[in-house]
Structure formats: C-alpha cells, structure tokens
Amino acid sequence: MSHRETSMSPAELGWIERHLLNDFQHGLPLEPRPFQIMAERLGVSEQEVIDLLRRLQNEGFVSRVGAVFRPATVGASTLAAMAVPEERLEEVAGVVSGYPEVNHNYQREHRFNLWFVATAADEEHLRRVLGEIERRTGLPVLYLPMLEDFHIDLGFELQWT
C-alpha cells in the first residue's frame, strides 16, 4: 500500500488536531480511560478526542494511535538495498513488494536505488526471504541490519508554519 492521499491539507487542521498530533506522540496515559485524560488536558470531551483521532486516522495524518515498538522486539528485521538497472526497476520492485515480510519499500536517488525493510519471525526466515529475492531477480541484496539504535524516540516536532 502506498501512502493514503488525503483530501485535506495539513494547513486545514485546527488547533485541537495539531495539539493531538504534536503533544501526544508519546505519553499516552497508561490509564483505563486515556482519551478522557487527554480530553481534560485539551479542555474538550472524551468523545471529541476519539472522534478527532479517528478522523486524523481516516484522513491519513495519523498512521495509528498506539505503541511504537523497538525494532526486533519480536522477530528479526533488516534494512536491505539493491542496485537495480533503471529498466528493471518496476519488475524488481514488484517482486520485493510482493513479499508480506517486506513492510517498507522506497525508491531512492542513488546507484542503490531500491531500499526496503524486511521483518520475519526469526533470522532464518529472514535470510530465506532475502536469498529468494536474490535468486528471483538475479541481483545481490545488501544486508544492512541495525547493529545499534541511537535514537531516543520521543516523536518528532511538527511545525505548522
């Protein structure tokens, strides 16, 4: 799936939506009624918070409301890259994206022009998938697993100007 085209522009978002997006990227209260607590902080009703989050999700501005798991919390994953001849890009991208184990696949401006993330239950399964992609395409896959994660993930400061 590619990103969802939104019918709304980000500039049309109201202040409550902006606060929901910016202030609650982390720290969703671990309480029985988290949206009620968010609502109190914003001075709106619980139902309003839920409806706005649902709308932000439907419009594609929010991918989901929930936990961001550390990579490799469950299973094994890796970033991988391929240098695909321009005329084969569609075909190879199709092969790669066809695997349910591949959850991101981007074209980038570089000799290594195809970048994807593959995730599987274990390392053996992951190696099998990458090996299969190499065999099916006849192109080598650059394995770039994460060795260490340096990011302290508190979300991302959104700017609205």
Partner: peptide
C-alpha cells in the same frame, strides 16, 4: 495489560505510546 505495557516501556521494548503521525501526509 497496562502493567505489561508499563514494563515493556520501562525495558525499552516499547519506545513510546501515542499518535504516530504520517510525516508525508503532513507535508
């Protein structure tokens, strides 16, 4: 469930809980 999630937050399995914005859609 909340206790388990709290523990996963503490030990780093969960990095954060909240709204996950789609940067691309936001411009």
């Amino acid at each position: 469930v909340m206790e388990r999630v709290r523990r996963m937050l503490e030990n780093g399995c969960i990095r954060r809980i909240g709204a996950v914005p789609n940067h691309y859609a936001l411009g």
